[in-house]
Design a protein around this nucleic acid. Structure first.
Lengths: 197, 197
DNA sequence: GTCTATAGGCAGATAGAC
DNA sequence: GTCTATCTGCCTATAGAC
């Protein structure tokens, strides 16, 4: 049901992305350095620059891989043939898994640092949110169509509320090291927005 | 209805806090430097160190002032004698005002960078969330008591969902420069969690 | 209180040997 | 591809004059 959480690619390039991804998700893009990645991998900083000439390019590669993994996970949820409400629960479970690794969503973290990031990274972050919101909107439209969901306003607005709500639940729950805190909020959030009683 | 948004204290110390606060809320604690504050104020870095010997102490002072301002704003909302639902709307309006200045909530921003911060700042961030959640819980309990609100589960869980939801709505809406995006989510969030139809 | 000057360290990045 | 060595610049922080 879930895309491979990490350690997906083989080779040095993949190991760099794995280490950098974990560092960004826990410390932020401005909170880690090439030296951090190098020491974790047992290589030199110069070696990293061979694979990713600049930190900005490393950042772009991180978002691209993370987004692709998320797209795959959403495709898998669709392929599982779940009911709309179950799809939303599966979606929230993706976030819960991130929190279990004591991480923030990569793009949620980068959204906080948005003002400091180069344009290509900014665009990729918005694309991530757009894609997620589009998927959520479709699920909510399906739920309304089959009468399993009932809600005011547009599915787009509902999708936006869920996306932001889950990102914020992650943001606040992580410092407390409390996954239950996230899950409670996620359940109420989905129920509240979709009209479940 | 709203506490003074900024520029509250006079004197150099207050001007330093004002500039640093804006920088942290837009760029993050790891995304600004003493040089940024100094150039904005037209003083030297050394002068800043006279008022705040270390960046960590500046960070603690920022959270303390921000929290005090928020406590005052919540007290004002209580003093206005609003109905519980109106109190929640007023609470959300505090966040909307932050977004209008193209900022993130100070403590929401710092929550993202939590892993990189010194212990005193961490504790102050959690205290901010605890206080806000406690206030929201009381409002929801009042709403349930006077039957103006109806919701499943505990008021504590509902308060937590609103707090995280609003933080996340800010986080995601800010890169889009879209206050309407926040307000739509905030309205649905409050309605969904409190049982409004 | 604010300044000049500077220390000491770490950041991202490059050149060139192997 | 990975290394050693190095560059340049910025970072936080301090000393001491005014």
């Amino acid at each position: 049901m879930m895309a491979t959480p990490a350690s997906s690619e083989p080779g040095t390039r993949g190991r760099i992305l794995d280490a950098a991804e974990r560092l960004v998700q826990s410390r932020g893009f401005n909170g880690f350095s090439y030296a951090d990645v190098a020491s974790e991998l047992g290589v030199t900083k110069a070696s990293l620059h061979y694979h990713f000439p600049s930190k900005a390019e490393l950042g772009e590669a991180l978002i691209a891989r993370y987004s692709a993994r998320f797209v795959a996970a959403l495709g898998q949820i669709d392929a599982d043939g779940l009911a709309p409400a179950a799809k939303l629960a599966a979606y929230a479970a993706l976030y819960a898994q991130v929190l279990r690794e004591e991480r923030m969503c990569l793009c949620g973290m980068l959204a906080a640092e948005y003002e400091t990031l180069p344009a290509p990274m900014r665009h990729a972050i918005l694309s991530f949110f757009d894609h997620n919101q589009g998927w959520l909107r479709t699920v909510m439209e399906d739920g309304r169509a089959d009468r399993s969901m009932s809600f005011d306003g547009t599915a787009e607005d509902g999708a936006q509320t869920i996306l932001g709500g889950l990102e914020g639940a992650l943001l606040v729950a992580r410092p407390y090291h409390d996954v239950g805190r996230f899950e409670t909020a996620a359940t109420r959030l989905i129920a509240g927005v979709t009209g479940a009683r």
